[in-house]
Amino acid sequence: CGFHLRGDSGHYTLPFPSLYVGLPESSPLAIDLKRNIRANGGTTVVNSAKDADGVIDVLSNPEKTKTKTILSLNSNGRVRQYLLTYNIVFRVLDKQGTELLGPTTITLTRPIDFNETQLLAKEQEEALLYKDMQTDLVQQMMRRIAAVKTPGVSLPPAPLPTDKQPSGQPSTIPPAVPIQ
């Protein structure tokens, strides 16, 4: 039925020889993303944006914006389900800083059943769910980055528009006509 193993048609490899991840060093998302980039083969992770062919610029860090909202109550007004949300807004820039992939939002949610009798256990389950969303998010980010169209890496900057009138010069005053 037309299925073939992935990787033959290049959907998989990242179009960047080197990538920089714009997230704090110790953030678990950064560690997981870097690990997947390395495991992808063909792309190295560099530590500074300047010498990276592609820069993953994180506009809103999911670890700071994750939320936990009430999803369902039971008839005694007790919470029986929370909704965990984990969302990122990122974009991909090239070496010159031009945007290859515009601001992209990926939002993941997981419901978690809750019971106050197991508060400590539910706390750990929450951490497990966030970890699972993080792994899922990394996969989705990898696919988005793999689909980025790069116009050939590090082209010389586009030529300046020719003889543009410098804006400061008022072009209304005709040049003074010298009288003999």
Binding site: L160, P161, G168, Q169
Partner: peptide, 9 residues
């Protein structure tokens, strides 16, 4: 204003 030197494009 310094005369802007337009490099020949």
């Amino acid at each position: 204003a310094p005369p802007s030197t337009n490099q020949p494009a």
